[in-house]
Simulated scan of single mutants.
Amino acid sequence: MHTAMRIILVSAILLNAATCAAADKMKPGLWEMTTKSDAMKAMPKIPPEQLEKMKQMGVKMPDMQNGAMVHKVCFTKEMVDQDKPPASGREQHCQNKSFNRSGNTYTAEIVCESPDMKGTGTVKGSMTPDSVNSIYDFNGTSRGKPINQHMETTGKWLGSDCGDTKPFPMPQKK
């Protein structure tokens, strides 16, 4: 996956996870997250034999379905008990700013200021105990090239047992 796309996707997932957790209505456990974007629709399909080789090497790829990436995410009780979104780690090159929530809705601004990625994004969404929805838009540059990204993420709670799905690493503010 292209580095800029990975950075944006990880930032969006982190913010979505954190904002859902912040409303303290999200259930801990296993969630299925589906992310759609124009960039994902344009991605070439990986041949099954290459996917199998990657799996054998220990690379876990999300499922691609109809231009959407579907993956399982485990949220611990500690994650859903947080009151604020976590700071993005160095690898994300972005910071969550202007986080606001009202009832079951939230908005936030994401600012990226690194040599590889510059720009701003907004996220808005809503949640219930069993579901989350968010819309993420980002405009800026990645390695000097313009990037304009729109993503829509939906999530549904699958159950309290995460099975072999490990919790998503979420860097904390210091």
Rank of each mutant, 00 (worst) to 15 (best):
M1C: 07
M1R: 06
H2A: 09
H2T: 06
T3K: 09
A4M: 04
M5D: 14
M5A: 12
M5E: 12
I7T: 13
I7P: 04
A12T: 10
I13D: 10
I13Y: 08
L14S: 13
L14C: 09
L15F: 07
N16M: 13
A17H: 02
A18S: 13
T19K: 07
A21C: 05
A23N: 08
K25W: 09
K25R: 14
K25A: 13
M26W: 03
K27V: 00
L30A: 14
W31A: 06
W31C: 06
M33Y: 13
T34V: 05
T35M: 04
D38L: 14
M40P: 01
M40T: 06
K41A: 14
K41N: 10
I46Q: 01
I46E: 01
P47A: 03
P48W: 07
E49A: 06
Q50F: 12
E52D: 05
E52S: 03
K53A: 03
K55P: 04
K60C: 06
K60S: 09
M61T: 07
P62D: 00
P62C: 00
D63Y: 02
D63H: 03
M64I: 14
M64Q: 11
Q65P: 04
A68L: 04
V70M: 06
V70F: 06
K72A: 08
V73S: 05
V73F: 09
F75C: 07
F75N: 08
K77I: 15
E78L: 12
E78Y: 09
D81L: 13
Q82E: 14
D83R: 15
K84I: 07
A87W: 08
G89Q: 01
R90M: 10
Q92F: 10
C94W: 00
C94P: 00
N96D: 09
S98H: 13
S102H: 15
S102P: 14
G103W: 14
T105A: 11
T105N: 12
Y106P: 07
S114L: 01
P115A: 02
P115G: 01
D116L: 08
T120I: 13
T122L: 14
K124D: 15
G125V: 03
G125Y: 03
S126D: 14
S126P: 09
M127T: 11
T128L: 00
P129F: 04
D130C: 11
D130K: 15
D130I: 13
D130Y: 12
S131V: 06
V132C: 12
S134W: 14
G140P: 04
G140V: 03
T141C: 02
T141D: 06
S142L: 08
R143D: 15
R143N: 15
R143F: 15
R143A: 15
G144Q: 01
G144N: 01
P146Y: 09
P146S: 08
N148P: 02
H150P: 05
E152V: 11
G155W: 09
L158V: 03
C162N: 02
D164N: 07
D164F: 04
T165N: 04
T165L: 02
K166I: 00
F168Y: 14
P169A: 00
P169H: 00
M170R: 05
M170W: 06
Q172D: 02
Q172L: 06
Q172H: 04
K173N: 01
